[in-house]
Amino acid sequence: MELNQLFVIAISVIFINNFILSKFLGLCPFIGVSKKTEPALYMGLAVTFVMTASSLITWAVYIFLLKPFHIEYLRTLSFILVIASFVQLIEMFIQKFSPALYRVFGIYLALITTNCAVFGVAVLNSEMFLKTADNPARALLFCVTQGFCAGVGFTLVLLFMSGIRERLELCDVPRPMKGMAIAFIVASLMSMAFMGFAGFRF
């Protein structure tokens, strides 16, 4: 029962409601960091990590702080604060203890601080699972799954996109369409392909 539900969440977030192609979250890094495959992969990994972790943290904030004191209206403020400070903390931590890792991921972490995909997953979690949570442990499981899978879906599409854009470098694209414009057209065509997953029955 529970496993089945987790599976549904995973498929839905990765394919049907893909964060980039159907929910339009995280378009800035999608357009900005998809020119080459390697940076795209690192960005994807960083986003996946931060999404999973911030799902966990915002769950804690909501269950232990907002709910007991009935201050749910502070959700936006508190979520953005904990996410931003968490990312900053991670950045400092990595910088201190693993300069090699920092050289690879540092710049992406800085970009993620106010990434709408990360904040979006937290808000979605709270709308879908936390508002009506009677069983906090179950809600935690759902939140973290959704956070992780949203990151996986993000990484997947970012990787596809980077592969396509590397090839586009060699293409004879009309000049006004070069760069961002053609990237959006490619995204649109990819989104059409992903529409095939619409309306899944489980």
Partner: peptide, 24 residues
Amino acid sequence: LFILAPGALLVIGILIGAVNYFTE
């Protein structure tokens, strides 16, 4: 299609292209 996700990406792509074209 235009009120679904692919349409949004399509319209913005073409609009950015058009703006580029006219500025150029």
